[in-house]
């Protein structure tokens, strides 16, 4: 308590701190008014430039494309949501070309080693995408917990083509983030990477080595 008072008192003793009354001018943050197609192209280009993979797929056939992607990588199992419509569609598809489907249905402590060592890939939904930076918006939930998009070496994210925003500022304003934040909100813009060894890029340093986005249109 004393430290708190000491710090705040010292700050309050400062003079010349009158705040500016004019509101901030955010014009320089605005991007040209991109059409939906331009947004999509921009999103694709930017994400691909950082080693992400983007597939545009017809809403009706996404499971087929997913199966192809997973087979090409010899994925043995896929961690996917249970309650989210995507998870339901996946689980009720009756397809035999999909790997074993896993669920994150217990607290992390109960299965941590198995999540870290045995899961090949995960699939999550997203709350939208950001064209300018090629980013995905994720708000983890009980059905899709925080580590789902981080621990498995391949992360497949499903994005609705209608949910593209031009900038982060647009997204957070339009989605009303300041009204209440979840315990964890994420922007994900590519696979995990590092350039800490002589500025040479290496992927999958702590998180996924591959980020694959299915854009449903």
């Amino acid at each position: 308590m004393n430290a708190r008072k000491q710090i705040l008192d010292r700050l309050r003793a400062a003079t010349d701190t009158a705040a500016e009354a004019t509101p901030l001018d955010f014009t320089s943050m605005e991007r040209p008014p991109w059409s939906q197609e331009e947004c999509l192209q921009r999103f694709e280009q930017t994400l691909e430039s950082v080693h992400g993979e983007v597939h545009r797929v017809d809403r009706a056939h996404w499971l087929l494309r997913l199966a192809e992607i997973l087979q090409a990588r010899k994925v043995r199992n896929l961690l996917a949501p249970v309650e989210h419509p995507l998870g339901q569609a996946l689980r009720q598809s009756g397809r035999d070309d999909l790997p074993t489907l896993l669920a994150y249905d217990q607290v992390i402590e109960a299965w941590q080693p198995s999540l870290f060592n045995d899961v090949d890939a995960s699939l999550t939904s997203t709350l939208g995408g950001i064209a300018e930076t090629g980013s995905l918006i994720l708000w983890p939930t009980r059905d899709e917990p925080r580590l789902m998009s981080l621990v498995p070496p391949i992360h497949i994210a499903v994005l609705d083509a209608d949910q593209l925003y031009s900038t982060f500022l647009d997204a957070l304003r339009q989605q009303g983030w300041s009204a209440g934040m979840p315990t964890n909100a994420l922007l994900i813009s590519g696979p995990s990477k590092t350039a800490d060894i002589e500025q040479t890029l290496a992927y999958g340093v702590h998180g996924p080595r591959e980020l694959i986005v299915l854009v449903l249109g």
Partner: peptide
């Protein structure tokens, strides 16, 4: 343009 992760807790 942005880092891989922007983590808001």
């Amino acid at each position: 343009h942005i880092t891989t992760y922007f983590n808001m807790i």
